[in-house]
Amino acid sequence: MFIEKVTPRFGDADGLRHINNIALVEWFEVGRNPIFRMFTPDLDLNYENWKLILVRTEFDYLGQMYYGHDVEIRSYITHIGNTSFIIGHEAWQDEKLKAKGKAVLVHYDFLNQNTMPIPDDIRAQLKEHLIIEDKK
C-alpha cells in the first residue's frame, strides 16, 4: 500500500469549508504516482516514454471532508490482468474513511496505439501491493 499526505488548498473548499468533489480526482492521481513510477521511473510525460492510459475511474463519497485538515490517500492494487490492472484508493481524514474509489489503467504503447502485456518485473512489483477486496 502506498500512502500520500495531501494538505487541502483553499481553492479545494467551498463556502462551507467542504472539500469539493473535484479535488478527489487530483488527490487520487497523486496517490497513483508511485505506481506510475514502476512503468516510467522519471515520470517523463513524453508520449514515447509514457506507458499507461487511464480507462476508468469511480468514486464513492462516504463523508464530508473539510479544509484545514490533512487527508491521507491510500492506494493499492486490487487486480492484475494481462495488460491492465485496478488501483484501489481511499481518502482518510481525521482517522475516518471519507471516500474510496478505483482506477483501471492499461499498459499502452502510444506510438503504435495498442495495449501491451505488463512485464513480469513490473507485475511482481504490483503484486507486492495487491490487496484482494471483499466482494460483498
Rank of each mutant, 00 (worst) to 15 (best):
M1P: 05
M1W: 00
F2R: 01
F2K: 06
I3P: 04
E4P: 07
V6L: 12
F10M: 12
F10W: 13
G11Y: 14
A13R: 09
L16W: 14
L16N: 14
R17L: 12
I19N: 03
I19P: 00
N21V: 06
L24S: 09
E26F: 07
E29G: 02
V30T: 02
R32W: 00
R32G: 05
R32H: 08
P34Q: 01
I35K: 02
R37V: 11
F39E: 04
F39A: 07
T40I: 13
P41Y: 09
D42K: 06
L45V: 09
N46T: 05
E48T: 10
E48V: 13
K51L: 05
L52E: 03
L52S: 03
T57H: 14
T57S: 06
E58Q: 11
F59V: 13
F59A: 12
Y61M: 07
G63M: 08
M65T: 08
H69L: 03
R74C: 00
R74E: 04
Y76M: 13
H79T: 08
I80E: 05
S84F: 11
S84T: 14
F85N: 05
F85E: 00
I86W: 05
I87H: 01
I87K: 01
E90P: 08
E90D: 13
Q93I: 09
Q93W: 11
D94L: 12
E95W: 04
K98M: 05
A99I: 13
G101L: 10
A103P: 03
V104N: 08
V104T: 15
L111V: 11
L111Y: 08
N112K: 15
T115Y: 04
P117M: 10
I118G: 04
D121H: 09
I122M: 12
R123T: 11
A124P: 04
K127T: 10
E128F: 02
E128T: 10
H129T: 05
H129Q: 13
H129S: 09
L130W: 04
I131R: 09
D134N: 12
K135W: 03
K135I: 00
K136E: 10
